[in-house]
Simulated assay, not measured.
Amino acid sequence: MFAIRSAAIAAAFSMLTIAAQAEEVVHKLAIHVDQNDPAVMNLALNNAENVRHYYEAKGEKVQIEIVAYGPGLNMLVAGESPVEERISAMSLESPEITFAACENTHRNMVKKAGKDVPLMSEAVMVPSGVVRLMELQAEGYAYIRP
């Protein structure tokens, strides 16, 4: 009887361990960039890399989204971004870091420029940067603004 109980307890413990592994926690971070300032852009990228390295060293997963709008959208303008090369390299090395571009801001940039303003291929257009940040926070993302 004791052996059967011990086996049942061991099996239950094993099932709990498997369930915990199946429900692996993914840390989530939203980073807000709304300034056309290379120092702010680099700080945002540094924050993303530091967080990714931290969780990678712990063997844990992380998802990071950098949301650019307003003057910060210049971070994602092809051929103009002061951090374009760094973003391209990061995207290749770190697929867990993504870049969201505000469509409202982009539309206004195009209107003001009177021509197309191409964004980097790494940028994913979202209807509104502010709304995207709200959605990410509702999904459990931590929020920082460098």
Rank of each mutant, 00 (worst) to 15 (best):
M15K: 13
P118Y: 01
G59C: 07
D37N: 15
R5Y: 12
P71R: 01
A100W: 10
Y141R: 05
Q137I: 09
E122Q: 15
A3Q: 10
Q63E: 15
L76S: 09
A10S: 14
A30P: 09
N46R: 13
Y141H: 09
A101N: 13
F13Q: 12
G114E: 01
I18N: 14
S81Y: 08
V131G: 10
M125N: 08
Y141C: 07
I97G: 10
S128P: 04
P82V: 08
I97Q: 12
A101P: 15
M90N: 03
N42H: 12
S128T: 01
S88R: 14
V33S: 02
A10F: 11
R5N: 13
E103A: 15
A138G: 07
E85R: 11
L76I: 04
E96K: 02
I64Q: 11
A57P: 00
V33N: 06
R5P: 08
N42Y: 06
A138V: 03
A68L: 11
L73I: 11
M15D: 12
E122H: 10
M15W: 04
Q35E: 07
N108R: 10
P146K: 04
A10N: 14
I64S: 09
Y69T: 03
E135M: 06
E24R: 01
K112E: 13
N47D: 09
T17R: 07
P71A: 01
T17D: 13
Q35P: 00
S14H: 00
D37T: 10
L43G: 05
A20I: 00
E139L: 12
V124M: 13
E139I: 01
S14L: 12
G114C: 02
V33A: 03
L45N: 05
G72I: 04
L16M: 14
A44I: 10
N104K: 10
N42K: 10
A57W: 03
E56N: 08
I4L: 14
Y54E: 15
V77L: 02
I87F: 00
M1R: 15
L16C: 14
I64W: 11
L133V: 01
M109V: 01
Q63H: 10
M1Y: 14
S121P: 05
N108A: 11
V110I: 15
F99H: 05
A68P: 14
E139C: 00
Y55K: 03
P38R: 03
S88N: 11
A123W: 00
I97Y: 08
N36W: 09
E139H: 08
V62A: 08
R5K: 10
L92K: 15
F99I: 06
V67S: 04
S121V: 12
A3H: 08
V26Q: 07
L73R: 05
E135A: 07
Y143Q: 09
L43V: 00
E139Y: 03
E65V: 12
V77A: 02
L136I: 03
E80Y: 09
E49W: 12
A78V: 02
S6Q: 15
E93K: 14
A39W: 02
E24C: 00
K58G: 06
L119C: 03
Q21F: 12
C102R: 04
S91E: 04
H27F: 12
A12E: 15
L76W: 07
A11C: 10
G129P: 15
L92S: 13
C102N: 06
T17P: 00
M125P: 09
A100H: 12
M75K: 05
A100P: 08
